[in-house]
């Protein structure tokens, strides 16, 4: 008896499961035609127009002011949301209290609520006659129709990102490390400051980066509350819309390219953060 002559034909495909070509082919086709090629149209536009023209379109005071406003306020909103997002995640993970499930569900409201609805609600709320606006008005603080209105809308829209990236990591790390810190003589503050926060840092930064990206690109909820005063409370996405309405495609594309470049940088930063976090596991 010899088994040498027995030849099992190898399947033509290297893959055990079927559908590789079809599923990957469709994925790449769909992604390319609907996302990548249109994005390429934007990326190449400045080259069609000449880089000088693009620079001229961007370097006007109005455009520069709008970019500063969008990115500056987005950074502020990301920082504020990171702080409150961490506190909210901490309360949701560590404390037990009635109504916790409801509170947890409400966090996602800015994801679910259409931005236009959020926009008119925030605008009405913070207007000088609104519930919050009228109280602040007594103290001489104006929010609606000023750059601060932009900040308020950004804080609203980005909050879920910070809570939802920190929360699962916090519940996964458990209390072992804090217990170890306590038995080694650390005070509560030391164990939060030296153990919990550093361990949570990748998650906190990831949440902040996502919050920043969302806030910088946000349009719907902001334009109602901002007042949209050129060079004061006019955000970059609105400027793109205005330029498109004036058929200034080159100008719109120039601002769009800057916004897109920022998105790419944030995406790279996020990927970097992810692999950093993975390494420390």
């Amino acid at each position: 008896m010899s088994a040498i002559g027995l030849k099992i034909p190898l399947p033509k495909s290297r893959h055990v499961l079927p559908g590789f070509g079809l599923s990957l082919g469709f994925t790449i086709f769909y992604l390319t035609s609907l996302v990548l090629i249109p994005l390429l149209a934007l990326v190449l536009r400045p080259f069609e127009l000449g880089l000088d023209g693009m620079w001229n379109a961007i370097s006007t005071p109005r455009v520069m002011a709008s970019l500063r406003l969008s990115f500056g306020m987005a950074l502020a909103a990301a920082v504020i949301d990171s702080v409150f997002g961490f506190i909210i995640a901490w309360v949701l993970v560590r404390y037990r209290f009635p109504g916790k499930a409801l509170l947890d569900a409400v966090i996602d409201l800015p994801f679910a609520l259409p931005t236009a609805v959020a926009g008119i609600a925030l605008s009405t709320l913070y207007a000088p006659t609104g519930w919050i606006g009228s109280i602040l008005m007594e103290h001489g603080i104006k929010i609606a129709y000023t750059p601060w209105g932009v900040l308020v809308a950004m804080i609203f829209i980005s909050l879920p990102f910070t809570v939802r990236t920190v929360q699962p990591v916090l519940s996964e790390i458990g209390r072992d490390m804090e217990e170890a810190a306590a038995t080694l003589g650390a005070t509560r503050l030391q164990s939060i400051g030296r153990v919990v926060l550093p361990m949570m840092l990748p998650a906190i930064l990831t949440g902040a980066a996502m919050a920043f990206a969302r806030a910088a690109g946000e349009y719907g909820s902001i334009i109602f509350i901002a007042g949209n005063i050129p060079a004061v409370s006019e955000i970059a996405p609105l400027l793109i819309v205005i330029k498109l309405e004036q058929y200034d495609y080159a100008g719109a594309a120039a601002v769009g390219v800057v916004m897109l470049a920022a998105s790419f940088i944030m995406l790279l930063a996020l990927n970097g953060l992810q692999s950093w976090a993975a390494k420390r596991r």
Binding site: D176, M177, E179, A180, A181, A182, T183, L184, G185, A186, T187, V195, M199
Partner: peptide
């Protein structure tokens, strides 16, 4: 726990 000065070793290490 902080002032007992008792060294504690955990099953899952709990290293930082």
């Amino acid at each position: 726990a902080r002032t007992r000065n008792a060294g504690f070793v955990f099953q899952q290490y709990a290293l930082f």
